[in-house]
Structures are given as C-alpha cells and as structure tokens.
Design a protein around this nucleic acid. Structure first.
Lengths: 341, 341
DNA sequence: TTGTAGGCGTTATCAA
DNA sequence: TTGATAACGCCTACAA
C-alpha cells in the first residue's frame, strides 16, 4: 500500500524471491516452450502478477545482439500515400514480432545523424520510403553493415535491397491510354528532380508517347509532388497559352491541384476537355470532386515483399543481401479519363 | 580486407585494445564533458573510426533505467490530420533527444498486448492520439506506472496527462457563425460515438444553437470520421427530404464527403445554398474543390504542451503526474461559409 | 587524467 | 525439472 516505496522497476530477482524459486525459473516461466513444471510456472506467474513484474527485453538484446527493432526512416507524411504505407508497414512489422523505431527526416541531409541514433539502439535492420537520391547516402547505408530495405529507390549497393513500383511500365500504360483517348497535346507533370521513381515514370511516359507518335507535342512541367505545385503548373501554362488535353501526373496530389486549376484558371472540365491521370491512388483520388484515374502501387504487395527481404536478410546475418523486387502498379480507371462509373 | 571475418559488432573493448587504452577511456571519448586528454581522445576516435565502432546505447539503458524511447501509440493514419500530427510529434521528440517506438493499433482492443510489448522495451513514457474511450484502457495505462500523455481524450487518471483541443468552445463558435449566416436548418454531423472530442464538439454546438434559438431545428447525423460517412449522411438526408442550410461536421474528412454529396445528390452549392464547416484544418480543406472553413487544432501548440508534460513527468519520476491542457482551436474561414478570398 | 572493478537484468550453459 | 554461474557491453565509482 506504500506507493512511495517503489523506486525501481520490479525485476526477476524480486519475483524469484517472492515465489521462492530461482531467477532461472522466472525466466523460464516467461519463455514459451522452456522446460518448467506447471506448478512452478503458476507460482512464478502469481508472484509476478502480485508484484506487477513486467519482463525486460533490454538485457536479452545485449545477450543475443538482436533487438527485434527495425529502424523505419520516413518523411513526407503529409502525402496520404506515405501515411497509409507507413500504417501498413508498421502493421506488418508488428505482426512479425518486430518493433518500429521511427525516424522522421525532413531531408536527406539530416539522415546521417538520424542513422547514428538508430544504430546506437542496435536495430536489426532499416526500412525507408525515402527517395534515396545521392550516392553518398547509399554509401552511408552500406557502411552500417545492416540490412536496408528501400521503397522506390534506384540506387543499389551491398546490404541494400529495394522494392520498386513498376514506374517505367506504368508510364508506358499511361501514354497508351492517353493515345486511346485521342489526346493531341500531352503534358507530363514531373515530380521532384531527385525522385528516381518520378524520373522512371516520365521516361516510360515519353517512350510510350513516341510509340503513339505523340512525343513531339509533349509539354513538361516541373512540380514537387504537392497539391500547390500541380495547381501552379497549370496556372503557369495558362499564362503561356498552352492548353493540354491529356495529363499524366507523377503523383495524385499534383493531379488534384491540376484538376482544380484546370477548372478555375482555364475553365476546362475533366474528362470533357482534358483527361488526367495520377499515381499512388490516394484516398482523395476517389473523392467525387476529383474522381481521378490513378496507378495503385499495391502497397500491401510491396510491404509483403519488403517483409520477405527482411526475413531473409535477418536470417543470413553478416552477409550483405542485395535484391530488387518490381511490383506492377494497377491502373484504376475513374472519371478523369472518361471511364467513370 | 577480410569482410567475412567480421562476425559480431565492434565493441568498446575492441577499440580500447586497438588504441592501447582502457575501456573507460573509450567511454569517456564518446561522452561529452568527461575528463579526458585531447591526445587520448584523438587516439580513441581514430581507432574507433578505423574499426567502424558505433556506441551501443543498450547497456546504458540497463544501467540508468532510462531508454530515451517514448512509445507512440497511434491509429487512423488515413486521416491526414493524424498523419501530420504524428510527423510533428516525432520531430519534437527527436529534437528532445527522444526516440519514437511506434505502435500502430487498429482498435483499442489490441491495445493491451501492444502496451506489454512497449513496456518490455523499457520505454520512458507513452504518447497516444487514440481516442481513449473506455475506463478499462485508462486503468491499464495507469497500472503501467509510466507517464502517459493523451491527445483529445476525456478520461483522466494517475500518470495520465492530456492535451485537448477546446472542442466545446469551438462548437459554440461554430453555432454562432452559422447563426450569423442566417442558417435556419442546422445539421450536426457527428463523429464516432466513442470519440469524446466529437461529443464535446457536438455539445458545444447544441449549446450555441440554443443561444441562437436554432436548437429546435437541429438535425443530427451519425458518421464515423470518414469521407464516405459524410457523403452517405447527406445522401441519406435527401431520401428523408431534409435540406440543411448550415452544417457543422466533427471533422474535415466527413465535411468533404458532405460537400460532394450536396453537389451530386442535392444539387446544392456551398456557400450559396448551404454553409459548412469542419474540424482539423487538414490540407484538403484548403484544396479549391472544397475551400472548407475549419477549426485548426494547432498541433504545433498541442505537441509543445505534450513535450512540456513529458519533460516534467520524466523529471519527477515515480510520482504520477496528471494534468490537462486545453488549447483553443482557431477558426479558419474559407469559402464554404461565404468568407472566401 | 587514467585504469580497475563492479554491476545493470536477463538468458544460456552446465551440473545436479 | 531445477539452480548456480557466466556472459552480454557499457558506465560509474574508486583508486592510482
């Protein structure tokens, strides 16, 4: 009843004393599958419950060298795509008995110190959805001698595995679809220059347009994956007197901005005057105001592949795994390309 | 050059041997402010660099009993509000030298096992944005004897502190604004029943309507904080032949759904035929298709308050802190209430 | 300033 | 099945 008397956490020694058994017995009572009599186990559990004992995994990390913590390095959660991807990834990791040590980084510059902190907690591996652009970052990651799994990153190296959406293939499909819709003045709304996934989408799109004979008419606008940049790109085109009739946007956020700008600045309606498609299939793409055709990256599949890579890498410790999975994106046709319900 | 030779991580003992100093010297070289000669420190750092030594914080956790990890329990990341709130919280924690041990839970039912796992890593505290509805959850949290900081939760208890948006006050303001706009048939679009923040907003709104003499005309629809539930609520009203002319939605997601349904199902325009306001001020509220008036919870302030609570609780260990902060929400007027640009 | 020794709380190993 | 012991890697006294 003396609440103040409790100064430090209850340990297995305390439980052992209270139950009149050895410390090993306490350990066994809490380790499934270890040889312990039902009677002893019950005694231990009773004592543990009455003392409020909770097993401490920290010492086990020291002994085994495995923490069962995975460093998850993310950024850009204001994009619903990354937010839901994180949710799925966290769920999958937890189901595999792994903990998520989250690290938010604003830009790749702060990555180095972030990695030091993660590593000091003896994480078993790193998973990141960051668009790993620079070679130096890849080198930093490789030097950790820790399994790394990246999403939509182009750089490879020892210890680094990657799960990519089939960005190039989706670009081809996008061009094909626009061709089918009779588009004459295509527009490519590019994501950040350093984003290799965006570059791959753009390349595929251009190649597809060449096949369709539309390449010479291509306009290209630079965005940064935000709604505002999509809006501004269209507003900018209006000033230049350019009127696209078919748009492929590197992501859905920009596409939504573009749709609004088309309505407000150019008085153009989708899909009557212009067809448009995005990438990521964020929830807002299905919202009625946008009804946006988009490529779904199938984050469930991508996360599942990432978990496979993780399992393998954690099994074959101390040998650098480096593999790449490509997951096809699925075209979700909606009203913005005239394929409405 | 023998990569295979490296089996286990480099320890401070290895560095000490390589540098020809004691293990303590290595420790001191990596502990800022400890008494060590420049010469020794340099020797150690050089040896550490060449061996690729990285300090291990796990033993320090055992010694100090503090892990500098905070368990962050979240859910509902598909709502951009929670995603950006998490981003801000993670940033603040990292800046304070704390790590984020993330735990995603789908519903409060899975919370118990999640807590066990978090506690086994000897986290210093817990921060959660979950709408802690049930008393049993509060009890479970209290029994951890660990500082807990909740966002927008109504239940209190020992060890549990709370940072709340002024939900009731915002409801009053919403009613007042609708009254000013000459609304005659107000609608309250409620969030999940178990969400105490939503209930408080609703109460404030009703009270405000009574003041304005509009309470008898109030319609109430039950939603679950999703876009679809907002859309469906309006679609349902149409069938019942009810035409609201002023709506207060418990969150922005539902408000967006409502706006789309008003357009599509009822052919009503905002703000000409109906004014509407939401809560959270998610990025989509500013998107041109919605241009939604909303209450901004000021997550920066709320996170800052949470960090204060955390600092205090971590300082005064073993004495249960229990405090509540109320942060006023700021009305952001946009076109949906006729206050457009 | 430097080195030595002990301990943090658990698990693995071994002997009983 | 049980208990004693060593070990994990570092930090904090304390002694030199």
């Amino acid at each position: 009843m003396q609440e103040n008397a409790i100064i430090r956490a209850v340990t297995s020694i305390d439980v052992a004393r209270a139950a009149g058994v050895s410390q090993s017995a306490v350990s066994r009572a809490f380790s499934p599958g270890s040889s312990i009599s039902a009677r002893t186990k019950q005694k231990v559990l009773a004592a543990a419950a009455s003392l409020g004992y909770r097993p401490n995994r920290i010492p086990a990390i020291m002994l085994s060298g495995r923490s069962y913590m995975v460093g998850v390095v993310i950024g850009g959660l204001e994009n619903p795509f990354y937010a839901t991807a994180l949710e799925r990834l966290a769920t999958a990791l937890q189901e595999s008995g792994l903990q998520v040590l989250l690290m938010h980084v604003d830009d790749a510059l702060t990555l180095d110190s972030a990695l030091d902190r993660l590593v000091s907690y003896r994480i078993d591996a790193i998973v990141t959805s960051l668009a790993i652009g620079s070679k130096s970052v890849v080198q930093a990651l490789s030097q950790l001698r820790l399994p790394v799994v990246c999403f939509n990153s182009s750089h490879v190296g020892p210890w680094i595995s990657t799960v990519n959406s089939n960005n190039h293939g989706a670009g081809l499909v996008a061009a094909h679809l626009l061709g089918q819709r009779g588009v004459q003045r295509p527009l490519w709304l590019a994501g950040p220059v350093r984003n290799s996934a965006s570059r791959a989408r753009g390349k595929g799109f251009c190649q597809g347009l060449r096949v369709a004979g539309l390449a010479p008419a291509l306009t290209r606008m630079q965005g940064n994956d935000t709604y505002d940049s999509g809006y501004d790109a269209i507003a900018c085109l209006r000033k230049q007197g350019i009127r696209p009739d078919g748009i492929f946007s590197s992501n859905d956020m920009m596409a939504c901005g573009a749709i609004d700008a088309l309505r407000e600045c150019m008085d153009l309606q989708c899909p009557r005057d212009v067809v448009i498609m995005g990438y990521d299939n964020i929830p807002q793409a299905a919202w009625r105001s946008y009804d946006l055709t988009s490529f779904d990256q199938h984050t469930e599949h991508m996360v599942a592949r990432a978990m496979e890579l993780l399992d393998e890498a954690l099994g074959t410790k101390d040998s650098p795994l480096s593999r790449t999975y490509i997951v096809d994106a699925q075209l979700i046709e909606r009203g913005s390309t005239g394929s409405g319900q």
